[in-house]
Design a protein around this nucleic acid. Sequence first.
DNA 1: AACGGAAATA
DNA 2: TATTTCCGTT
Length: 518
Amino acid sequence: MKAGCSIVDKPEGGGGYHFPEWAYKTESSPGSRQIQLWHFILELLQKEEFRHVIAWQQGEYGEFVIKDPDEVARLWGRRKCKPQMNYDKLSRALRYYYNKRILHKTKGKRFTYKFNFNKLVMPNYPFINIRPNGVVPQSAPPVPTASSRFHFPPLDSHSPTEDAQPSRFSGGSLVPSNPEVLGDGGERKPDMPELEDGSSDWRRGVDLMGSRNAVGAGSVNHQKRKPDIMLPLFTRPGIYPDPHSPFAVSPLPGRGGVLNVPISPALSLTPTLFSYSPSPGLSPFTGSSCFSFNPEEMKHYLHSQACSVFNYHLSPRTFPRYPLMVPPLQCQMPLEEQPQFPIKLQPPPVGRKNRERLESAEEPPAPQVPPAPPRVKVEPAMDKEAEPEEPPVKGKDKSDREEGPSVADEEKGPVFARPAAPSWHPAPPPAAAAEEPPEQGESSGEKPPREAGGEAAAQEKREDALMPPKLRLKRRWNGDRQVDVPEERHNGRVHWTGALGTPHLGAGPAAAAAASDT
DNA sequence: AACGGAAATA
DNA sequence: TATTTCCGTT
């Protein structure tokens, strides 16, 4: 179906790196290899080339600003082969993340969202080691450098989630000692049975961290077979040769180091839960030989993380459980060489609307040749302009940015090759900065100048508390069709979805509920 | 602009 | 399942 969208991965040796396989998988759906929007966003955030389009916002951890919504949408659309993508749609997708707690909106700031890194545990990142100097790439979010200092051992093939079992405080240990199959590319997806309950999430998190740490620190822990080596050794044979990078393509100039992959600290924030590790013997930082700590940062970091952990209902599912590997990209079109017509008309969305219209207009919905789509929005094939999605070649187009990749372009170079400014510092991108004079801290009047972490956490908590039951239910990882009773909306209106009409199966939650399948 | 429901899609 | 598409509200 997606003719022009075939694709594969980006061979470029440089510009693009792929996220580890797990990143392309839906935690819940193993088979899904489609990149997720948030991964994509992260990806863009990592690249300097896109700094003018989207960038980390200074001041808040994980907060980013979409400077050019249309562009981001375009890029996303390209990636997903959805030429009709636009910011409106993209933003809808982002909004879905609210309930998933992957993201939330920074109120008052246009096009500004914030990652809830608490939920984004990216095993691979831990490997990332920021430059010794502790320089944080500019494209890095204002995150405590401390995070970058963590050096976690590679996770095993088993998912962190799983792996976190053992030490729940005293709790039952369901830990089925999953024999993690190491060589496994992460195909297995042992689902946790019921532990999914959000209530224990934080514990899991803790455990998770604990285990990881343990590994690093060489402490307790179960079947940790992997030495603490760093590195994604999980490369699958035949894929990318560069096992040294969490990414498919090693951004490293020389494969020398292990992972200097400059990555945005945000990612490394992962260790979030860390802060929580009550485990006595497990000190997160014990084994980190590669970094230096900045007590203050650490403190700040830990504090915020801790709070967050407490206040968030972390969903285990959010924890990727796949080892790093090079994944096959999905719809990555080689742009440049792609068809002359970068954009293909997408068959008119035969959505309900269209259908209706069509029907009204005509009648027979031929299951194939969509007649004249009533409202096809044809996206003009962009000129040759092919954006540098991940153009293997680069080093020129971005010249417009002040970044001036004078160094080895990110080619293989670290995407963050140019650690221009410490993120947390005053280096607000021109555009963004311009809009937001008051540095960080949602000056937008929603957050008092407080500790970012604590505040944030508190805020989150509040939100949580205020969250209507419905949402909470929904938040049960939308997957659980637990909602059997028509949920009412806010205190006001009640929409009996079911009553509205024929609930199409498989449709929304309501339908699901109705169906109450599985 | 941002939100979120509903339905559709892959 | 994760968006994509539409769209009415706020």
